[in-house]
């Protein structure tokens, strides 16, 4: 799929982002820099569409990623002339640009002070609050970032982006149960997001691995991880990460069969019996090798996978075949 300027560029690969930002001069030239709001000119020229401004915003982000700061400034200028300096989203973009321009920590501190200033005027400026948290995190002040994020989520608990960021920070600190809680909150907001289901499965699996095998709590996490991966596959039946996780978990279950004596709590998920686990394992292996095969042949409809994820799946399959 060719990268489009109409989608946020955050999950594009570096190459795709570069490709987008190289288009910057032509896009900037071909699109109008301002749109007149007078009724006469509206009759004769193309009218303003939201797409145009989304394009500028995404172009700005891509240009920043690839270091084309001149084009980024141009985009911002146009956005500012349209929306003014007081728009919350524009303020966040301006801050982002300042962060990118900063040469050393002192300048970043200055940007942070500005954010604090803005937030003391208007505490509900969510884009700026998020920028401040991101800046704190990138400056390595993780605990401050977490406390600000928790504060943000206290007054805005319906923000999926913030919850997943919180989950990510907790995970990076190794706080699995907190990360799981945050990811569950994301799922409450977007119940059918298969990637979040798989992510939650990954975190549960990590938690299970960390707490040592044979442990009761580790078995519970393992059971839930298995179910999460299965759910993500149910929602999207070509999802590589789901199959990968399913294979990992079932391999582990088959290698270390659970002792069933301790399963007394009816509230918790139970690990499936061995035959089900075996069938799930077969299913995951089959599907993974199918995906890898089709991707290698570059079949139509199978090209959208990430290169590194395919490589990881190939490794896993090879390791499994060698072990068996």
């Amino acid at each position: 799929m060719a990268p489009s300027l109409l989608h946020p560029p955050s999950q594009l690969s570096p190459a795709a982002a570069l490709q987008l930002s190289q288009k910057a001069p032509t896009v900037l030239q071909s699109s109008p820099s301002t749109v007149s709001s007078s009724p006469l000119s509206a009759l004769f020229t193309a009218s303003e569409t939201p797409d145009l401004w989304i394009k500028y915003e995404n172009l700005l982000l891509s240009c920043l990623r690839t270091g084309d700061e001149r084009a980024a400034h141009q985009c911002l200028e146009r956005l500012v002339t349209r929306f003014g300096n007081d728009n919350e989203r524009i303020m966040a973009l301006k801050g982002l640009l300042k962060e990118a321009d900063a040469q050393n920590n002192g300048e970043l501190e200055k940007v942070l002070e500005e954010y604090d200033q803005i937030l003391s005027d208007n505490a509900t400026n969510i884009p700026i609050a998020k920028r401040r948290i991101a800046l704190l995190r990138s400056m390595g002040r993780v605990s401050e970032a977490v406390s600000s994020l928790v504060q943000l989520l206290d007054f805005s608990p319906t923000d999926a982006e913030a919850w997943s960021e919180l989950g990510d920070i907790y995970l990076s600190q190794g706080l699995y149960s907190q990360a799981i809680y945050a990811l569950e909150e994301v799922l409450l907001l977007v119940p059918n997001a298969w990637n979040i289901h798989a992510r939650l499965g990954e975190v549960q699996y990590m938690a299970a691995t960390a707490s040592g095998a044979g442990d009761v709590s580790s078995q519970k996490s393992l059971a839930e991880a298995l179910k999460r991966f299965a759910r993500s596959i149910e929602l999207c039946d070509d999802y590589l990460r789901g199959y990968y996780g399913l294979k990992l978990v079932t391999t582990r279950i088959l290698r270390e069969p659970p002792n069933r004596t301790k399963q007394d709590d009816a509230d918790d998920f139970v690990l499936p019996d061995t035959s089900t686990a075996e069938r799930l394992h077969e299913l995951a292996t089959e599907k993974l090798s199918e995906i890898v095969r089709h991707y290698t042949l570059q079949d139509r409809g199978w090209r959208g996978y990430d290169e590194s994820e395919i490589a990881a799946a190939r490794d896993l399959l090879a390791k499994n075949a060698a072990g068996a």
Binding site: F155, S156, P157, T158, P191, D268, F269
Partner: peptide
């Protein structure tokens, strides 16, 4: 005000999408 409104929405979300959670959570 935002806290009040969004907390209520949060509750509504929990109520509508409770099936994504395990019983314990």
């Amino acid at each position: 005000t935002m806290r009040e409104q969004r907390s209520l929405l949060h509750g509504i979300n929990v109520r509508t999408n409770f099936h994504t959670l395990s019983r314990k959570s």
